[in-house]
């Protein structure tokens, strides 16, 4: 959709943040992390309540119930539409995994497919010494995407997960992390979509910087 530049700037003002609440875990810590940055996000439980602005797509839990929750609230269509429109969207943890195609969780779950690729479990056999889920602070090697402005290489972030994303295109991988014999995609992105496997809302100063950078990502180009 084309609109006047002035409108576009207003639409993607850094203060308009909508968090999708689709029943996948507790969103308190995500909301509070934005509040610490001086932004008061709106939580919505239906696509009908979305007005405009940046979208945060968090989530903890399993892929199967996550997708059900998204569909029941019309968020699957909303995410497709806004991704196509170039709205900045931040996926976190399960939210990131649901952006991909097939997930091996729950016997196979079709994700949103907004980023080509699949979601697979860590293979304990690859490193019998590690513990699953991957829980704790781990380092991220990023490619210098605007989401990581001011974040040093190998800064640590807080992870809790047992499955990981395997995007088809290297260009969709914005950062990688080592665990259980994998150098997995811990940050992915495609167009205005960005997503982290880690929890920026629980990752101290480095996580706060990622959230701040998300608020500064540009929306659709004016034309």
């Amino acid at each position: 959709m084309r609109g006047p530049c002035r409108g576009a700037l207003l639409v993607y003002s850094m203060h308009m943040v909508t968090i999708l609440d689709y029943g996948a875990g507790n969103l308190t810590s995500v909301r509070l992390a934005f509040e610490r940055l001086g932004v008061t996000p709106r939580l919505i439980t239906s696509a009908d309540d979305y007005v405009r602005g940046r979208i945060v797509f968090p989530g903890v839990g399993s892929a199967g119930s996550g997708m059900e929750g998204l569909r029941a609230r019309g968020f699957d269509a909303l995410l497709r539409r806004e991704a196509a429109a170039g709205t900045p969207i931040l996926g976190i943890c399960l939210g990131m995994q649901l952006l991909l195609g097939m997930s091996a969780e729950d016997g196979g779950v079709e994700g949103l497919g907004l980023i080509a690729g699949e979601v697979v479990p860590f293979d304990e056999a690859k490193d019998p010494s590690v513990k699953i889920p991957h829980m704790g602070w781990n380092t991220v090697r990023h490619i210098g995407h605007p989401l990581f402005v001011g974040v040093p290489q190998d800064a640590a972030f807080y992870f809790v997960h047992s499955f990981f994303a395997r995007p088809q295109a290297d260009a969709d991988v914005l950062g990688r992390t080592d665990y259980c014999g994998e150098n997995f995609a811990s940050v992915v992105g495609h167009g205005s979509l960005v997503a982290t496997q880690f929890h920026p809302e629980r990752s101290g100063a480095a996580g706060a910087q990622v959230l701040r950078n998300f608020l500064n990502l540009e929306g659709p180009a004016c034309s």
Binding site: Y158, H199, R202, S203
Partner: peptide, 8 residues
Amino acid sequence: AARALSIP
């Protein structure tokens, strides 16, 4: 605590 802390 949830309001004040950015760590788990």
